[in-house]
Design a protein around this nucleic acid. Structure first.
Lengths: 273, 273
DNA sequence: CCTGATAGTTTTAGGGCGTAAAGAGATGTC
DNA sequence: GACATCTCTTTACGCCCTAAAACTATCAGG
């Protein structure tokens, strides 16, 4: 029988995440001064994960980077799980909290999406965090707050907006995940990003003869040439899967506009059968 | 220095994934008959993951369920990593390959999205698979093939369609992930899904006083009442985050329609500044 | 029938991991 | 100086994946 973290543990971990404001208590009393800090530990852990991936992240490894044993970390952090939560929230701190709304919500959302995507790609391990429980740290909320503030410009009602927020957040995360995946193999084999699909396709045709006949639509989709599409407003993050991100985002934004138009007509719910 | 799987290993793993067609070779020669099979192992592994989550999945655990030692599995499967790939592809086999297109692409895409989401929710561990490398199994391609076949009805060109496919696949996966996350804690604490947010919000306000002032837009979004919205065509999968899925999907489909309309006007690239 | 090769399975072992528990050493208060 | 307290290390346990060796059941050829 596995015992999961209860409400009490949830409170401890939340307190650590939100510690900045409430933890100005002065330290007094006997005992040596702390040689480490939560921040230093989180920094070291992020450095390990950035350099060698989430699989290489271990308490011993992080301690080693700080010149300590792995167990020393437990003075500052209750467990590895909490450390990962802290890493996650710290990575999101890189994102700006404000966006210029003078160019309209569409431009601002595009900037938000690109920057968030770029952050995920700088720290691909973020995409592996929190698959089984929410983190709910201050910076995660800040990212959403930023997006919601932009989207309120659309005038859409809250119920719809919730769906739009989820749609945008999920799309950006998923798109980043796709890129992070395709970057894995090339880093080892030396195949440049662009040729990754063709190398995989060759392997597929070898091991699965008749691929093209079995998946005609996929084959059609992948063999069609990329439409030259220089859309400067969304275009400076190209590369593998870059065009898919750009066009996907454009479709999404068009959907928001269509929903706005429909709401303006006094037809808030989708009426098409 | 960690050594990653090379091209040769990739070929072995692909051969296992695609084994159905090419592996009808009769077994002859001395030695005992195989008492297990790849299929039986994958079934047992999925049963373990469904029941106890990905964290509880271990070679020993799967072997035990089959009345063998953990090492016995290595006769059939090269490593745990390949086994997980096989589990992933097998789970996706539950999804139908065909969709009725007589109701139009919009209805068919909705059905595809709901069924895919339901599959993810039946096997939440699927959402934790393949975070660092693509799987590329036959059923994963079948899921995409199905979606692309539907979307070709829109008449959109391939370049745009790639973006739409990514958008849809990422959204469905992300939405399912959100639900799977929020289901984790309640299962232990007995809090019903619906009240999860309110319990968390209370904890937040306790540990982070001034939350509402710091994240006004998020607070606004979450405190607004849910719009009663009975859209029967997409509405039979409600529950927590269900409305967000429904509205997000509606926005997405509207975006596809808007893109189609724009393409029909001879304006394939998004022209809005 | 016997022998030897072969292949399924288990045992053993090695190097990871997270972390509980106990000890060592430093630092402050009294 | 004594002692409480705090940081940090050591040791240890149980789990993980899996390489290698040992065991065992089966079949082919003599």
């Amino acid at each position: 029988m596995v015992v999961y973290a209860g409400q009490g543990d949830a409170r401890r971990s939340m307190a650590l995440l939100w510690r900045a404001e409430a933890q100005a208590e002065k330290r007094t009393g006997p005992g040596p001064k702390p040689g480490l800090s939560v921040d230093a530990i989180v920094d070291a852990a992020i450095a390990v994960a950035d350099a060698e991936g989430m699989a290489a992240l271990s308490m011993r490894r992080v301690g080693e980077r700080l010149g300590r044993s792995g167990m020393a970390l437990y003075t500052y952090v209750p467990s590895k799980s909490e450390l990962v939560d802290l890493m996650y929230d710290r990575a999101l701190a890189e994102l700006p909290a404000e966006h210029d709304l003078r160019g309209g919500w569409r431009t601002a959302v595009t900037a938000w999406a690109e920057q968030t995507r770029a952050c995920y790609l700088r720290h691909p391990w973020v995409l592996q965090v929190s698959q089984a429980r929410p983190v709910l740290g201050p910076n995660e909320f800040a990212v959403i707050e930023t997006l919601v503030r932009i989207l309120r410009e659309t005038g859409l009602e809250a119920g719809i907006l919730r769906g739009v927020v989820a749609l945008l957040a999920d799309f950006v995360r998923g798109a980043a995940r796709t890129v992070a995946e395709s970057r894995q193999a090339p880093a080892e084999t030396g195949v440049p990003d662009e040729e990754w699909w063709h190398a995989r396709a060759a392997l597929l045709e070898e091991v699965a003869p008749g691929f093209a006949g079995r998946y005609p639509s996929v084959t059609w989709l992948e063999t069609q040439a990329v439409t030259p599409r220089r859309d400067e407003s969304v275009g400076h993050l190209e590369g593998i899967a870059g065009p898919a991100f750009t066009t996907g985002l454009a479709v999404l934004l068009d959907g928001i506009e269509a929903t706005m138009a429909r709401a303006a007509h006094g037809d808030p719910a989708r009426s098409r059968s």
